Simulated scan of single mutants.
Amino acid sequence: MRMDTRNLGHKGRAFASTFRTIALAAAASLPAGLMAGSALAQDNVVISAEECERNQSVGTITYVSGYGYSASAGQLDVFLAKEFGFFDALCLDVDINAGGANGQLLVASGQAQFTALGSASDVMLAAANSRNLKAVATYGNNSPFSIFANEKIKSLKDLEGGTLGYFINITPIAKAMLEAAGVDMSKVSLIKMTNYDPTVVPRGQVDAIVGYASNQPEKLRSLGMPFNEFRPEDFGLQGTYNVMEVNSQFLKENREVAADFMRASLRALEYCLANEQDCVEQISELAAANNQGSAFPADQQARTWAIESSWVRNSNKAPGEHSPADWKNEHAMVAKYGELAELPNIDEMMDAELVASLYKDGRLQWPR
């Protein structure tokens, strides 16, 4: 099923009519409650005039995608919530910065309001330098990281005397994996990677890379290239998948507005969990239209979302919902391997109530 992106996202009856038609056609295949009955109200705006005025009064809300147009939870859903008109329906004026900027810095400084990060570890490492960030959603309890290696590497211990590549930093959960495998890191040469080409591993330019399980290893599989992959769960380690953060001051002053931002994006996430191909095609088209098509081709996006959507589904909570217990293991890993002078308590970094309040009996309440 394809949505007409020429009209979606524009205010007016054209949106409402288009979406109601799509909703009726798709209702039978979607999860119970997603589009049953009135998916939207009979007009574009689905909240009261008072609520609409409240949401409009904050002006433009800026979301920063640090990973461009990647088909990932906390990103894909924000792009498509805008395209589908869900933000419009809640009177939210949302601007998306997809330039790959440092979302944490922009949000912490108040130049933007929302951004998504790859794991709770990223949130914790950022929180050590800025207390003006608050995590409001965690999308899964699978770590997105893995170590993929040349086929000659049969165990991580075999990296001793070899080379290990990494992007930005070696994540705490990767360090925990290496320690659990008994690797003497003084015998491993670390190399900071300058591009995301995973074929350097089977071609022997580096022995292994700390990468993203839904991306580089899946690319190698699609090419039929041999390699070995090591995941945190192989060592009894549990992490987290993707976190949405908001500027703390914005959240404090505009809690109901922040809740509506999350309501709209989770509405789109719900749709994309049920309609993977359609959402992959649309986010890929958006990437191409904004000169990022070569970085986010549809085949790669499909592989990524096939894996990452399963992480959302396999979470033990409703999509986005989280609690301090979900971060406990990773907090311990960051405390041990994060090389921080001070690590804030989980409660200081997380708001566990905002997203939970959007669900009733496990179902997202739309519009209320």
Score class of each variant (00 low, 15 high):
residue 165 G to W: 08
residue 339 E to N: 15
residue 125 L to Y: 07
residue 11 K to Y: 08
residue 7 N to A: 04
residue 344 P to S: 10
residue 349 M to P: 02
residue 98 A to V: 10
residue 179 E to L: 04
residue 214 S to T: 13
residue 30 L to C: 15
residue 287 A to M: 04
residue 184 D to C: 05
residue 88 D to S: 14
residue 274 A to C: 15
residue 68 G to Y: 06
residue 147 I to E: 08
residue 56 Q to M: 05
residue 175 K to G: 04
residue 331 H to G: 01
residue 13 R to F: 11
residue 271 Y to I: 15
residue 67 Y to W: 11
residue 159 L to K: 12
residue 232 P to Q: 10
residue 101 A to N: 14
residue 24 L to T: 10
residue 56 Q to F: 02
residue 50 E to P: 00
residue 215 N to K: 11
residue 36 A to Y: 09
residue 263 R to M: 12
residue 103 G to T: 05
residue 141 N to T: 15
residue 262 M to W: 02
residue 344 P to M: 08
residue 221 R to N: 09
residue 315 S to T: 09
residue 26 A to T: 12
residue 189 S to H: 00
residue 270 E to F: 05
residue 250 F to S: 00
residue 67 Y to H: 10
residue 251 L to P: 10
residue 348 E to S: 13
residue 279 C to W: 02
residue 368 R to C: 00
residue 228 N to Y: 03
residue 243 V to Q: 09
residue 261 F to C: 07
residue 304 T to F: 07
residue 310 S to E: 07
residue 191 I to K: 15
residue 180 A to E: 05
residue 290 N to T: 08
residue 82 K to P: 07
residue 289 A to R: 13
residue 307 I to L: 12
residue 279 C to M: 03
residue 193 M to H: 03
residue 46 V to R: 00
residue 271 Y to E: 00
residue 258 A to Y: 02
residue 368 R to F: 13
residue 320 G to Y: 11
residue 145 F to G: 11
residue 59 G to V: 09
residue 35 M to V: 12
residue 46 V to L: 06
residue 9 G to E: 13
residue 120 A to G: 15
residue 49 A to C: 07
residue 257 V to Q: 00
residue 98 A to L: 05
residue 258 A to N: 01
residue 339 E to M: 07
residue 262 M to Y: 03
residue 124 M to P: 04
residue 124 M to F: 15
residue 187 K to E: 08
residue 171 T to D: 09
residue 299 D to K: 05
residue 232 P to C: 12
residue 204 G to P: 08
residue 266 L to H: 09
residue 65 S to N: 08
residue 220 L to K: 02
residue 245 E to V: 14
residue 267 R to N: 10
residue 38 S to I: 05
residue 116 A to M: 09
residue 26 A to P: 00
residue 356 A to I: 04
residue 254 N to L: 04
residue 185 M to C: 11
residue 133 L to W: 02
residue 331 H to S: 08
residue 45 V to N: 03
residue 334 V to G: 08
residue 276 E to P: 06
residue 94 V to M: 09
residue 188 V to R: 01
residue 192 K to P: 10
residue 143 S to T: 07
residue 121 S to L: 03
residue 341 A to Q: 11
